[in-house]
Design a protein around this nucleic acid. Structure first.
Lengths: 206, 206
DNA sequence: ACTTTTTTCAAACCGCTGTTTGAATTTTAA
DNA sequence: TTAAAATTCAAACAGCGGTTTGAAAAAAGT
């Protein structure tokens, strides 16, 4: 691997990540990417074997860093009470709301995939989502130790849905008739509130 | 209004609704629409003033029929207990899971909009979502009569999120590592389960 | 019956898409 | 220093996108 080629590779990846997050796969032209990255148009085909290949790389990277954020804290969560662990989990899920950083871009790329999943994405999910889902299932199991597998899985998905609806519709929620502006303080409040509601729901007998 | 022109209008609308639901706005070409509808290509520009105009019509229609489904039952819900009303509401929200009918297509069209809302959609939402959101807020208020406005709104969104995560990710959820196959029986179970969890969460002190 | 309006139609237009090409340039290795 | 490999580059290619056009056909009005 030579140095200069790595540089253009990185420039392309960075620009592509931003544009894919903003406009989605179809909405992003390779001309837009190479202009932003200030590299030649053919570079994408040379380094990534086409637009598909580039997208695959961006997707893998996004998935890796997003789930890593939760998996890193798996151990310390075991030391917490189930309520505290739940709050910590939800807070981390809501993290993309706090900053317009890498994590919020990655989240947006995923949102595009939920409407019409690419085969690349489907495969990625079925191969690598297990650890993350395991974490969520483990968490809800602490509230419902006697629940069967399907119930636990549904509860985990249910929990994630409570977060994703705020992540996904942030802009819409800020406007009327909702008027839910999610600034930093509001996100703190939201994380606590969701935790309480979720814990209340799971706490009762299933 | 002449009869034959109404017929081609309807054919275009029907085909467009299906294709927009399946592939989204950008993913649907007017050539695909006119082929499916078996009308001339220029008909879209003639009847709808372009692809944008056609999409606007489809969107309005989808929104109208979707929210109508809940609003129709607003009165009878007042006669039910809060728990029963919640279950009925959630069951109706999950209805697109039960049949591959109009409602599930309309839901898909909306899902496309959540990633990158069209200005048409933004306007539609801010103008016409109030009655529907009002219904949801009213419902959660029965569990938390003392809650402030922001909390009630957040609770309503929270509630909708618990449903939409299953609506949106149906296909993904069926595959490993989740393995949640949502057939008719499973949807019944899911509606009950979500209602119980949501009621449990809202029931406690906010 | 005839005129006017509405509606359909095939063809063309023009801009944008992802990819390919083959030569020029740079980097690496001997 | 020199030969080979890797990388960059501008240009062209082929196909699809939404829209426009102007004439033909059908329908409505008189």
């Amino acid at each position: 691997m030579t140095r200069p080629s790595e540089i253009t590779r990185e420039r392309i990846m960075k620009s592509a990540e931003r544009l894919f997050a903003e406009r989605g796969y179809d909405g992003t032209s390779i001309r837009a990417i190479v202009t932003k990255a200030r590299v030649n148009q053919a570079a994408i085909n040379y380094h990534f074997d086409g637009k598909d290949g580039l997208y695959r790389e961006v997707l893998r990277e996004a998935f890796r860093t997003l789930t890593a954020q939760q998996l890193e804290h798996a151990d310390e969560m075991k030391a917490l009470s189930r309520e505290a662990a739940l709050t910590a989990f939800i807070r981390r899920q809501l993290h993309p709301l706090l900053a317009r950083d890498e994590s919020s871009r990655h989240m947006r790329i995923f949102n595009w995939e939920t409407v019409r999943p690419t085969t690349v994405f489907r495969k990625l999910l079925s191969e690598e989502a297990a650890p993350f889902m395991g974490l969520a299932v483990e968490l809800v199991r602490r509230f419902q130790p006697e629940a069967d597998e399907r119930t636990s899985m549904a509860a985990a998905v249910w929990l994630l849905g409570q977060c994703s609806v705020f992540l996904r519709n942030r802009e819409q929620l800020a406007e009327p008739p909702m008027g839910l502006v999610l600034d930093e303080a509001a996100v703190d409040w939201l994380a606590d509130t969701i935790s309480r509601w979720a814990a209340g729901g799971l706490g009762r007998r299933a």
